[in-house]
Computed example of a mutant assay.
Amino acid sequence: MPTLRVMPKIVTLTAAAARRIRSLMDANPKALGLRVGIKKGGCAGMEYTMAMVEEKSPHDEVIEQDGAILLIEPTAIMYLLGTEMDFQTDKLSSQFVFNNPNQRGACGCGESVNLVPAAEKAPHAD
């Protein structure tokens, strides 16, 4: 019998992130969910992108968790593998926060990140 290879989840949502995505979906009845992607830009090299969308693109990865729907752009999958998406509120801001194991750095303002694809990470020594 062949050995099954278990792949890590692309993105998991905290309860707070799922609640926020559901509230965004409720505010726009035509919205299918929140699409997340990665684009080049910012002083650290890459930025997360997010937009409420009304339809799925052909190759989007769909994650449904606790009533929230997250669509992942195919070009972002290797940069997001194993990421936890949270939603945090403090005295001055409310925002989605990505706890991404593929992140190697971030700029001082927090708007851009330095990411490497999951396949390029060096193996961990045990």
Rank of each mutant, 00 (worst) to 15 (best):
V11G: 01
V11T: 04
A16P: 04
A18V: 02
A18S: 03
A18W: 01
A18I: 00
R20F: 00
R22N: 01
R22I: 06
R22H: 03
L24A: 05
D26R: 11
D26M: 11
A27M: 02
A31I: 14
L32M: 13
G33Y: 12
L34D: 03
R35C: 08
V36T: 09
V36P: 02
V36H: 08
G37L: 06
G37M: 05
K40W: 01
G41K: 09
G42A: 10
G42V: 06
C43T: 10
C43P: 05
C43L: 13
C43V: 00
C43W: 09
A44L: 13
A44M: 15
G45Q: 07
G45D: 10
E47V: 13
E47I: 13
Y48W: 14
T49F: 08
A51Y: 06
A51D: 14
A51E: 09
M52V: 10
M52D: 14
V53H: 01
E55C: 04
K56P: 04
K56L: 06
S57Q: 15
P58Q: 12
H59P: 01
H59Y: 12
H59K: 15
E61I: 07
I63R: 15
E64F: 08
D66G: 03
L70K: 06
L71M: 14
L71D: 09
T75W: 07
A76I: 12
I77R: 13
M78R: 10
M78Q: 14
Y79G: 04
L80A: 07
L81M: 10
G82T: 05
G82P: 03
M85R: 05
M85Q: 11
M85G: 00
F87G: 05
Q88P: 00
T89A: 08
T89G: 00
T89D: 02
K91C: 02
K91M: 15
S93N: 06
S93Q: 05
S94F: 00
Q95W: 00
F96V: 03
V97M: 08
V97A: 03
V97F: 04
N100I: 12
P101N: 12
N102Q: 13
Q103F: 00
R104D: 10
G105M: 11
G105H: 06
A106E: 08
C109F: 01
G110V: 11
S112R: 08
N114T: 12
P117R: 05
